[in-house]
Amino acid sequence: MFRTIQDMPAGNILLGLIALGLLCYAIWRFIQAVRDTEDKGSDAKGVAKRLRYIFSGLVYGSFAVLAARMVLGNSSGSGGDSRQTLAAKLLEQPFGQWLVGLLAVGTLIAGIYQIYYGYSEKYKKEVQSGGLKHEVEHQMIRAGKLGYMARGIVWLIIGYLFLQAALKSSSSEAGGNKAAFQFLENASYGSFILGAVALGLICYGIFMFMRAKYQPIHT
């Protein structure tokens, strides 16, 4: 994905902005965990959710570093998928197939949870706590539902690809968003499925923009 952006007109500028945005998001995730901006609490459940924010911050921080290295010309130049690189590094370790398998299971669980989170509308309480106009609140809930479910589908496919990499001990089987979209496109009625997932991801982006604008931050 980063390579595609870099090859666009003014690609380095765009990629630099994305790197900065990813870094800011990673910092925000750490702030969410440490300052408890969403009032998760200090019990076991709250701490688990705040640790999830830290993990998310580390992941997005690593993406920010990768994008920044590409802008500065320090990337390896292979153009390979970052998840393929991760799978290759893990497979080189002792019990590498098991490590990739665990990563696959974790990704699959994350995908299932995203779909459940969207379908059950558990995110509604975060939206409703903002004191928004009914129309804005309704739009956010609809966008969030479609967005979380589409995001979950993509994570499920990525988890499946990691699982194939573990079973076949081949990092080339692993893939990120691009591989997941190709997987959908090659399925029966793939274009329609891919279009539906793309629409859902657009809704997720709109939902996150609206959250950034309207959701209150507890300090």
Rank of each mutant, 00 (worst) to 15 (best):
P9F: 01
A10V: 07
N12D: 13
L17C: 14
L20K: 03
G21D: 05
G21I: 11
Y25L: 10
F30I: 05
F30K: 08
Q32E: 12
Q32S: 08
A33H: 04
V34L: 10
V34F: 11
R35C: 07
D36T: 06
T37S: 09
E38S: 10
E38Q: 13
K40M: 13
G41N: 05
D43M: 04
D43L: 06
K45Q: 14
V47I: 12
A48K: 08
R50L: 03
R50G: 00
R52K: 10
Y53E: 09
F55Y: 09
S56T: 11
S56R: 08
S56G: 11
G57D: 02
G61N: 01
V65K: 01
L66G: 05
M70I: 15
V71A: 05
V71F: 04
L72T: 06
S75V: 07
S78C: 09
S78Q: 13
G79Q: 15
G79V: 00
G80F: 10
G80E: 12
G80S: 02
R83C: 06
Q84K: 14
Q84S: 11
A87Y: 03
A87I: 05
A88Y: 00
K89M: 05
L90Y: 02
L91K: 00
E92C: 06
E92K: 15
Q93D: 03
P94W: 12
F95R: 04
F95K: 04
L102A: 13
L103F: 10
V105P: 02
L108E: 09
L108K: 03
L108V: 07
I109Y: 15
G111T: 01
I112F: 13
K125P: 08
K125T: 11
E126R: 09
E126S: 07
V127D: 02
S129H: 09
S129F: 05
G131E: 10
K133N: 14
H134W: 12
E135F: 06
E135V: 14
I141R: 06
A143C: 01
G144Y: 11
L146N: 08
G147D: 04
G147F: 02
A150C: 00
R151W: 01
R151S: 11
I157R: 02
L161H: 05
F162H: 14
L163T: 07
Q164T: 15
A165L: 08
A165I: 05
A166F: 06
L167V: 14
S171I: 06
S172K: 03
E173C: 05
E173W: 12
N177D: 15
N177C: 08
A179T: 14
A179C: 12
A180Q: 05
F183R: 04
N186T: 11
A187D: 01
S188E: 01
F192S: 15
G195N: 15
A196L: 15
A196N: 08
A198D: 13
L201F: 10
L201T: 15
I202Q: 00
I202C: 04
G205Q: 03
I206G: 09
I206R: 03
I206D: 10
I206A: 06
F207W: 06
M208E: 05
F209L: 11
M210W: 11
K213L: 12
